[in-house]
Design a protein around this nucleic acid. Sequence first.
DNA 1: AAGTGGTCTAGACCACCGT
DNA 2: CGGTGGTCTAGACCACTTG
Lengths: 257, 257
Amino acid sequence: MLKSALMSHDPTRQSIRVAAPTFSPLYRQIKDFMIRSLEAGEWGPGDAIPSEGELAARFNVSQGTVRKAIDEMASENMLVRRQGKGTFVASHDDPRSYYRFLRLVPDDGNVEHAVSAPLSCAIEEAGGEVAAVLGIKIGDPVIHVERLLRFNGEPVVLDQIYLIAELFPELTLERLNNEERSLYSLFENDFGVRMIRAEERLRAVAADRYISGLLAVTEGAPLLLVERTAYSYGDKPVEWRRGFYCTNRHHYRNDLG
Amino acid sequence: MLKSALMSHDPTRQSIRVAAPTFSPLYRQIKDFMIRSLEAGEWGPGDAIPSEGELAARFNVSQGTVRKAIDEMASENMLVRRQGKGTFVASHDDPRSYYRFLRLVPDDGNVEHAVSAPLSCAIEEAGGEVAAVLGIKIGDPVIHVERLLRFNGEPVVLDQIYLIAELFPELTLERLNNEERSLYSLFENDFGVRMIRAEERLRAVAADRYISGLLAVTEGAPLLLVERTAYSYGDKPVEWRRGFYCTNRHHYRNDLG
DNA sequence: AAGTGGTCTAGACCACCGT
DNA sequence: CGGTGGTCTAGACCACTTG
């Protein structure tokens, strides 16, 4: 019966397409349905979702159709397949996606754990730029976090982060002070906000006095400025940040696939 | 019969796996076979490859299996599918993949055509760094190209490019002087070398006297340094380049999917 | 209308993981 | 061993492009 709810391949579908002029195959409707389940928190990060067979029965479609829906979601990093075990909701706790958003790596391949040191955390009124990017009104409350990222003890990144305040109630400096989990792990676990994708804009800038002090470089030293907008389910912008990267012994890695 | 050549799903396959311990599904063997066809130039850039049905018959497998092979190749930008028309070998001539490797965009969304002005082109002996990256010996001949990229008439990028010389015979400054085609289009058309993917390392540096002159910035101004290794079929490194990007009115765009 | 890629099915079997 | 994802098939039909 869910099949009819999903407007399956029966003749009815023709008339449906009048209402929805853009053709949407069954597997995409199933995908959208599953995304809504994720949005609603029906399946939480790290959980196993029902098996392909069960979902196929539930939606009254063939396994192959469910499979194609899951394939797309896995390729978009919403789900993680594990052969023989099941399909799981992606989580920033998982080491596999831990550093998915941090592209800075040391010049020598040595993996070093980045340690985050929060500097400040306060509620502010959104300025024009932040409001525009986050899709809120100027003056709406945002949480402004500043933090330092250290590799091997050396300060390398200064992040200035802006979050939609209502999504992160009672986020305080103390709660940010957790060296075990990444920031996005914390968001996901404590506030149920999962970052799905992000857009970054990079440029080179000169360090001003304040930043040069924090990163232990000379004033005017070239820094990599990374501006990021991060989106949650439904392509909703949730975070905007500006990161100043010291690239003396590290670089930003990018694969053009 | 090609099916047997591809070690299909018949019982024989079990014994094959002894020789090749890593399990390789049929569609992947077909994919590898097709990649070899591309490597050999059997199908050239822009050409249509045989239809899925014909390939299925040729390989003696089902259409779905061929489809999955093509799917992977399309997702790796080797092939381009066009519904109702066919599947084509990707080409840098195609506007869709024209700017696939240039991530620099103007801050205001206006699309401007980048114009390339070659400055020099000479054969040199590979230094240590270049030789290591390109997988050749120190002293082996490489072609060193320097060129300026202008947006809207303003110089924005200085590229220092190193190519394995034997792959680009008789590449001269005059031949580079072509404002219609991108560099990779020229490589693909004139030398049969197609770039499939690339890795980039980004960092911020200060402009030295030489570069500041070319890019019309002050000495010491922060520039985005982009080092790229580009690979052809079979993950063979073919080009290494160092690009100095002026990011006053442009930025490097990256999607973290 | 013919040809191509795109979707969907029903069922079989294989590879992998846990118990 | 049973359960899960992964592969493969044979065939039907849909959507898109071109002549």
